[in-house]
Amino acid sequence: MALLEIRNLHAEIEGEEILKGINLTLEVGQVHAIMGPNGSGKSTLAKVIAGDAAYEVTEGEVLLDGKDVLEMEPEERAREGLFLGFQYPVEIPGVSNTYFLRAAANAVRKHRGEPEVDAAQFLRHVRERMELVQMDEALLKRPVNSGFSGGEKKRNEIFQMAVLEPRLAILDETDSGLDIDALRTVSHGVNSLRSPERGFLLITHYQRLLNYIVPDTVHVMVDGRIVKSGGKELAVELEESGYALFEENSAA
């Protein structure tokens, strides 16, 4: 059984169809990349999988470990092991990062019928993960993303992912707007978490990320459809030729 199975997914917002029949199969242990021009529907796909109620799914299926996630509330999807790293992480004033992480970790544990995390043990785990993404410990006490720089916000997404250890992580342009140092850190975080028990769906606008994280498969998304899939060499090809070629194909 595939970790993620998307079949003929159609979704719209305010009556406008954005996803026009997406098919994608991601086996556990794999890393897939989705590339595509601005506005092609990449974030829409990520948010639909995560359960954003602003979008309406009109057709199709999304299965996580064989379970129909479209029937689930966003929090249930998360508890089943889905993680979305946001393109634009949200600021939550007044709620500290530590609290937020503990609440999230406990929600998953409760779902699995496990007891709440031991505070001291959890802190050790959190510290270890902070090192992985080289995040400043001071950020733990700060409210979630409040007043964080763009780079800090992205790091915080990877950090949360590292703490929560999801089964499937969808990272929406986590590499955009990062300097090389930050990009290396973020990639290091992802690479360290790669495992036969986990899968990644990396949404990216730039081929550069794929120099650091080598994907098993690259998909090209144009106008709400996946127009081509291939190996990592596809990314290089795209960098050279651009999307224009595919855009024509999709219009045809």
Binding site: A50, A53, A78, V90, F100, A103, Q160
Partner: peptide
């Protein structure tokens, strides 16, 4: 913010409670 918290496994009710409290 509510959606963001929910994607981390926090329930809708809890997210609203926490955000209101923080405010």
């Amino acid at each position: 913010a509510v959606f963001y918290m929910r994607t981390r496994g926090i329930s809708d009710q809890e997210a609203r409670g926490v955000l209101t409290f923080a405010f």
